[in-house]
Amino acid sequence: MSLLHIKDLRLGFKTLAGQVDVLHGIDLDIAAGEKIALVGESGSGKSVTARIVLGLLQETRTARINGTVQFDGQDINSMSARDRATLRGTEMSIIFQDPTSSLNPMFTIGNQFTEVLRRRDPKLSKADSHVRATTLLDEVAIPDPARVLRAYPFQLSGGMNQRVMIAMALANKPKLLLADEPGTALDVSVQAQTLTLMRDMVVQNGTSVLFISHNLGVVREFADRIYVIYRGNIVEDGPTDALFANPQHAYTRALMSAVPRITGVGIPEVPEVSDDFLAPRISHGDAL
């Protein structure tokens, strides 16, 4: 059985002008320990999917969510808000785009770490959490963890904050890690370093990952399987190698050609909308 099972997930937002549909029936599965990427352009519905899995969007009163989202055998959509909150920060966690603005500027890293660790272990003492945090920061190759724990986020570099975020996200040994364009706000070399670190850490912990990105190049190194999403529909999915070897869907090909290369041909032209992009879903076998 898969850890995360999404079946016919639909999402709409109620607005004054009527309902705006964002997701038109998404199917997606993640096995235990599997690293999945959900790739698509801005506005394709990838971030809202992550927020539904986390149970955050369910709290938005204008959101209309239908379909099945099963996490570890439980249906997220039919849970109480309190039960969903219990899963967050313990069984699943998330890493956002910009690590520096994801950390609260008013509290030290150490304070925020304690809060995260107390999600799993509410009675954890300050001293014990300090010891645990030091070990965890050491695992993500942060030099002098004691100093970092005393620091505020604005005193650390973006790469350092990203390492802190990775350590926090995995601190409570979650079953599922959501990564919403992690490190997009960082410069490319730092992003690459922290992504490698993140991959090593999740492989070591056996964590399943839903990696959300607009960049197929970044995803290729990371994911076991890829789902390509366009305008609220999955248009193509399959094992990473198979998908890259033989991209079938017109939108997947367009996305691949959009990855910048150092050949000096400039930015490739991708049409904004093409009828081909709306062609039905193509699946490259089932990796499950």
Binding site: L54, L56, A85, T86, L87, R88, G89, T90, S93, I94, F96, S101, S102, L103, N104, P105, E115, V116, R119
Partner: peptide, 9 residues
């Protein structure tokens, strides 16, 4: 950082 706090339950 508020979304982060919410995302951590």
């Amino acid at each position: 950082y508020i979304e982060m706090a919410q995302a951590y339950g």
